[in-house]
Design a protein around this nucleic acid. Sequence first.
DNA 1: GTCCTTTAGTTCGATGAACAGACCAAACCA
DNA 2: TGGTTTGGTCTGTTCATCGAACTAAAGGAC
Lengths: 169, 169
Amino acid sequence: MALGTDYPRQDCGIARSLELIGERWTLLILRDCFLGVRRFTDFQTHLDVSRGVLASRLDALVAEGLLERVGDGHPSYELTEDAIGLWPALLLLAQWGDERTSPGRPRRTFHHVGCGTLGRDGRCTTCDTAPHPRDVETRRGPGADPTLRDDAVSRALRVPHRLLEPLQT
Amino acid sequence: MALGTDYPRQDCGIARSLELIGERWTLLILRDCFLGVRRFTDFQTHLDVSRGVLASRLDALVAEGLLERVGDGHPSYELTEDAIGLWPALLLLAQWGDERTSPGRPRRTFHHVGCGTLGRDGRCTTCDTAPHPRDVETRRGPGADPTLRDDAVSRALRVPHRLLEPLQT
DNA sequence: GTCCTTTAGTTCGATGAACAGACCAAACCA
DNA sequence: TGGTTTGGTCTGTTCATCGAACTAAAGGAC
């Protein structure tokens, strides 16, 4: 909760959320975690964020209990259960942003493994439940723009894979 | 899309969303719109944001098509249909933030008018649909902290009322 | 119409955050 | 044991935010 990032007199859950995830880059770091990114360098490669800001955001997320620093050598950053609870909101935000800037052609699609596709409300169109991200596979969608970047992390993210599973780079 | 607020090389719906609503204060302005706030001074009273930032955020939201400036005298700011599409995501964020900082005691509750209460997934616990915000009533919840502020807008917001209806001040 | 108050901003100087790039130390690898 | 990769920190500059003062237009009372 650094200066200029909190809303001390707003008695509201959205304000409380923004104090945790509202700073620039934070939500994209969490998105990458869901997609399987785990290492400092991979975040940096994929996000083009300055190393100083990345280090400070990771520290804050660990301090807030949204990420865990795992391993004794070079650390691996993993989502906690609390952070995984953000998944439904994150999915809706992604769908809203896609729909608004690329109607009918999402940049990425999500699928209930062995069942159906996740629709506009985040529910599986086949079984009408909202699956845990562990049971969700992501694929590049028709609106994806492969010319934007060509680093190793982006290439790995183009391969269909489950959420929360460490990325193969 | 001011400088330092966009993510030009992120091919992702979340990044597109954040370019529209990711700046400090923007999401709280939209929240206030859902709650019925419409006028410049009321936003300023309720948010403690500097007048310069508020003016710049309102301009940006109008330019992006999320708000409409209505009336020829002192303007009234109203949500467009595009912005109303953010409601499900906003509700999930509010619930996540409440649950994380005040478990079991939300600061505000939402109810499907004439039906039931909105649960953790944003659906009515009685009819199992996700109602349009027009059909949602909001009330202060058990976790509300009335000592935080006592301006006219906050007082009006403590009275149960429908979303999207202009506030009685 | 004329004065007065409220509303909706703009402007300004000071402070704090983000940025790119250089630097550094620990981990890991042959 | 020496070199490379990884995971940072440090620094100077640029940009955003802040509170406070100022201004112009709108609306109300008479």
